[in-house]
Design a protein around this nucleic acid. Structure first.
Length: 213
DNA sequence: CCTTTGATGTACT
DNA sequence: GTACATCAAAGGA
């Protein structure tokens, strides 16, 4: 018998810890996205840590802007950014307040509302691909900049919340270099994933792009 | 399986 | 102008 996932919401205190502590602890937790059509639930299988001021790979490295302002606020809130001209990615702000550290949600397994996720991810060839990658995850859950700054710890009528779920045991958590991060930011082994999980995205080292003509 | 390329907002040089 | 916490389509092996 496998114990049923714990539906207790994660508290502010959960996020008010150093990002390198929170990131691996998020694996196996359940993200609940409430849409007008119904709920979609996702079991997290892959994340990356970004540690604000000390981290050249972080959006917060060069200080606050209109885009990243939420990262400089209190922990437990959602930072959503728009990138490559067409994709959204979702992060959870960690503590302490003002440090501007956050966890990028990179991949997960849809455990509820798969039919809703499939409508948003028409190119997915199977359900394992629905949220295999950070932009795919955000697309599957219908997440965009309108949700930037949402409190992920709120329980009543919140469009987003996190439940305790079934944490991945530490001996099944693997870590390695972050995907697609260039320069000095690429040295940190701050990508965490659930060992042997089919929904984890393939690792891609950073590759410089050729100039457009 | 693999590699190449186009899509293009935001931040920065 | 150029890089970027990306993805999907197209074509080759």
């Amino acid at each position: 018998m496998i114990a049923a996932p714990d539906r207790t919401p994660l508290t502010r205190e959960f996020f008010d810890r150093p990002v390198l502590e929170v990131a691996p602890d998020l694996l196996g937790r359940v993200l609940v996205r409430t849409t007008p059509d119904g709920p979609i639930e996702l079991r997290l299988t892959e994340v990356e840590a970004y540690d604000g001021p000390n981290d050249p790979g972080s959006h917060a490295y060069r200080g606050p802007t209109a885009r990243n302002g939420v990262m400089f606020g209190p922990p437990g809130y959602v930072y959503v950014y728009f990138t490559y001209g067409m994709w959204h990615c979702m992060n959870l702000v960690c503590g302490p307040e003002g440090r501007a550290s956050a966890v990028l949600l990179r991949a997960g397994e849809i455990t509820e509302g798969a039919e809703l996720a499939r409508k948003r991810r028409l190119s997915a060839r199977n359900d394992r691909e629905l949220a295999k990658g950070p932009a795919r995850l955000a697309t599957a859950l219908g997440i965009d900049r309108a949700l930037d700054g949402t409190d992920a710890c709120a329980t009543e009528g919140s469009p987003l919340s996190l439940l305790a779920g079934t944490p991945v045991p530490s001996d099944q958590v693997r870590n390695g270099p972050r995907t697609g991060v260039s320069g000095d930011g690429g040295v940190h082994p701050w990508r965490f994933w659930a060992d042997n999980d089919p929904t984890v995205s393939p690792y891609r080292a950073h590759t410089p792009r050729r100039r457009r003509t």
